[in-house]
């Protein structure tokens, strides 16, 4: 088995700010990895660079597809990258408005991605949309409603359904529970955990919620000032943190 995603020596500057400073990491099939760190640590930038949404100044990202062929993400053409994003990858944005089309019905949001991946049979697309709405605990009877009629938590679940309907192998999530009420967060975490296990997805997610990272991730990567300061098995990073910054992060969490 080899890594599904490998990044090596990623650098990215925004003016004087080093958003990414020599970042290397790998992600393996079926592995769930959380990237934690405070605001401005570069974790969202890293996610975007890995997914090809931001271009690093130096370094490379390698994606290995189901057939074992390696694709260098930033060397690929725009068309190739778009094809990967449509078929092999999913990206869940923190704000569902960035991942959904707000002027298109809930069912249309799911169906649109299927059509982009090549599906043409209207009945089949509609059935798949209904099935995925049910899987993310949305009422399929509401598939013709616009997303704006849904609550934030429901919109986020719709975005996840839109992402997963094409059967991606690799999913990027940027603060997937970020803007939600705490009660809704737990439900969404459970939903994500169940889908990830069932589908055997590789997931890379950014969060500042340490408790969510412990429960969802197999491995945790800690970022500060654009660099990885510590990484390891999730429970070890949180229970036996080595780096001063990780110790501060863990010590700052309020126990409920």
């Amino acid at each position: 088995m080899s890594a599904i995603l490998e990044a090596c020596g990623l650098d990215l500057r925004f003016g004087a700010v080093r958003a990414l400073d020599g970042v290397s990491l790998d992600l393996w099939p079926g592995e769930v990895v959380a990237i934690v760190g405070e605001s401005g640590s570069g974790k969202s930038t890293l996610l975007r660079a890995l997914a090809g949404l931001a271009t690093p100044d130096a370094g490379r990202v390698l994606y290995r597809d189901a057939e074992g062929a390696a694709h260098e993400v930033h060397a690929a053409s725009e068309a190739q990258r778009r094809r990967l994003a449509r078929t092999d990858w999913g990206f869940v944005h923190q704000n569902p408005r960035d991942g959904l089309r707000m002027g298109v019905s809930a069912g249309g949001n799911i169906g649109e991605r299927l059509m982009a991946a090549g599906a043409r049979h209207y009945g089949g697309i509609r059935a798949a949309a209904a099935e995925w709405m049910a899987r993310v605990e949305l009422d399929p009877a509401r598939m013709d409603e616009l997303p704006r009629n849904f609550s934030g938590g429901m919109q986020q679940r719709l975005q996840i359904a839109r992402c997963l309907v094409t059967g991606p192998r690799l999913v990027f999530m940027d603060e997937p529970t970020g803007g939600l009420d705490v009660s809704v967060q737990a439900r969404l975490l459970d939903l994500i955990r169940g889908l990830v296990e069932e589908l055997g997805l590789a997931v890379l997610f950014v969060t500042h919620d340490i408790a969510a990272a412990r429960l969802l991730a197999h491995r945790i990567i800690v970022m500060r000032h654009g660099a990885i300061v510590e990484e390891g098995p999730a429970d070890r990073v949180l229970d036996d943190p080595q780096h001063p910054y990780t110790q501060l992060l863990v010590a700052s969490v309020l126990a409920a």
Partner: peptide, 18 residues
């Protein structure tokens, strides 16, 4: 330590499911 909403039965069955 478990995800808040998961029933006890699922928690116990998880190692077998894995």
């Amino acid at each position: 330590r478990v995800i808040p909403r998961v029933p006890a039965l699922e928690v116990v069955a998880a190692p077998l499911r894995a």
